[in-house]
């Protein structure tokens, strides 16, 4: 376990020293600026718009971070051959992979926390604060964990460019699985419907983690939703990571 932590903290340190924090600053300033300018642009709806924007930025920024850093996590080490000295130590390859994963998770946690703090501060000042937003952000964070797992999966066998494309595609598809249900209703042949159902269950359903609309509009959210979302993450994410470990295990570092 301490070996995983050694890799994780090292990964975290690398991300931090990568000056990614400067982007956070940009985010903070942009959000603040937009919130001030907003009243000039719109008639009503300011509260909703600021909340939508804040949530969307935290989500989007997190996804981009998790993909762009995640896809290089393993492949960069292999390409640069920094992995040679690590694998020669008494560490299992899966420990290395999990360490990389949790290092990035830690980075995402810090990023998200900082952005959330700033966002909530702005809301408090304007009088729009709502603790349910924190729940929405928590679920967004769970979504990030799943996206990161996919990024690292692709990283274990593919180049950063391809992995980025795959991960982005998967993110988009993950938010479209609801359309499979619609498609299923319109199809006639039972095998086609079965295929739709199968795809719907197999492809990652990222909309499970999306309660932005409900929270912003003050609509109710089922109490057990968060719990099931967490279970989904643990199951699906665990499977993805296990696959990544398997792939890394078999790989030859030529």
């Amino acid at each position: 376990m301490s070996r995983i932590w050694a890799i994780a903290s090292n990964t975290f340190r690398e991300a931090i020293r990568d000056r990614i924090l400067y982007l956070l600053l940009v985010f903070a300033l942009l959000l603040m600026g937009f919130a001030q300018v907003l009243s000039l642009l719109t008639v009503g709806g300011e509260e909703k718009i600021i909340k939508d924007l804040g949530l969307a930025s935290i989500s989007l920024f997190g996804v981009l971070t998790s993909i762009f850093i995640g896809v290089a996590l393993v492949s960069k080490e292999i390409e640069r051959r920094t992995i040679y000295t690590i694998v020669s130590k008494p560490i299992h390859r899966y420990e290395f992979l999990l360490g990389k994963y949790f290092g990035l998770v830690l980075t995402l946690l810090v990023n998200t926390a900082v952005m959330t703090l700033w966002f909530y501060l702005i809301l408090l000042l304007k009088g729009f604060a709502d603790p349910r937003l924190l729940l929405a952000i928590a679920l967004i964070f769970l979504e990030l964990l799943l996206v990161t797992a996919f990024a690292i999966l692709f990283s274990s066998f593919s180049t950063p460019i391809l992995s980025t494309l795959f991960s982005l595609a998967l993110y988009l598809v993950g938010h479209l699985t609801w359309s499979l249900t619609l498609l299923q209703d319109r199809l006639k042949s039972p095998s086609a419907r079965a295929l739709c159902r199968f795809l719907y269950l197999v492809l990652p359903n990222l909309e499970i983690f999306n309660i932005k609309g409900e929270v912003v509009h003050g609509a109710p959210v089922p109490a057990t939703l968060s719990l099931w979302a967490l279970v989904y993450l643990l199951g699906y994410g665990g499977a993805v990571l296990a696959l990544a470990c398997l792939i890394l295990q078999q790989r030859d570092f030529t």
Binding site: N10, R13, E14, R17, D18, R80, R81, T82, Y84, T85, S88, K89, P90, I91, H92
Partner: peptide, 20 residues
Amino acid sequence: VTVKKRIGFLPENPYFYDYL
């Protein structure tokens, strides 16, 4: 993995984490 506790390895033209 236990064997690796007793060996040391230096690869050719190694590349290390340059931010450390």
